[in-house]
Amino acid sequence: MIFYSAERFYRKIVYLLLFFFTIFFLFPILWMFIISLKPVSQLYRFPPHIIPRPPVLKNYVYSFINIGIGRNLFNSLILTLGTLAVSIPVSIPAAYALSKFRFRFQSVLLLGILGTQMIPGMASLVPLFDILKSFKLLDSFIGLIFIYTARTLPLNIWIFKGFFDTIPNDLFEAALVDGCTQFQSMRYIMVPLVLPGMAAASMFTIMQSWIEFIVPLTMLFSEEKLPFPVAVYKFMGSPIMGTNYGAIFASAAVGSLPILMLFIIFQRYFIKGLTAGAVKE
């Protein structure tokens, strides 16, 4: 690789570039925190102050105490865990089948599964509403979990398939010879071997379900069920009352913390597990 084993001079450039991009990626987030610490009267100054003077916690107090964003975070947690609990167990056997079996229309099927990504999310809102309504799943977490699952399945299947691909078929055949059934061989031999892929798939599933906005907005009808992203937009005002940007950014900042921490903790496994077997040697 270009910088893989670069000389000292080039290493300096690498660090310089990394710092530059760190600023590019971090600054808007920092700015979000800064705005969340500013009262309205400080927002419309030019040039804007980088450090709020004085910083106020008013916005955080408002979104937590007055609006109770805590319970929305809790709802998001349930939705995310629910999606995780359905999406991962459903995608593992599917990926296994796509990787270890040969059958007709296999490539068509794989393409088709990835192809569900081609559907514009907005377009499916109305039909999804109808489906949930006919299953009596409107205004329920279960209905949402199915939709989230459908949206996370393609990527998860693809990640797991990459893992199964790297596991030699001999191992799997040996198990069959030993008298394992297909399911047993999957359960006892394959699944433990794809555990690292689990980290990557889970992370993407969590991220996607945590920030989903339009679907819960459309499908939920009770205040106490709203997940966190929908609750944030309560503060988007009409022209009449104005938008409470401080409260939006304060809640958004709090809401992104759990995901960020998860990533920091698990990033090693995550990177390792993302695309095993995707590189053709």
């Binding site: 991009f21 760190t22 990626f25 971090l26 808007p28 987030i29 979000m32 991220m207 945590w210 920030i211 989903e212 906005f213 992203p229 944030v232 937009y233 939006i248 950014f249 958004a252 992104s256 995901i259 960020l260 990533f263 990033q267």
Partner: peptide, 11 residues
């Protein structure tokens, strides 16, 4: 680098 990805599109 991953931080932006933890925010929802509208934020």
């Amino acid at each position: 680098f991953i931080l932006p990805y933890t925010l929802s599109e509208l934020v």
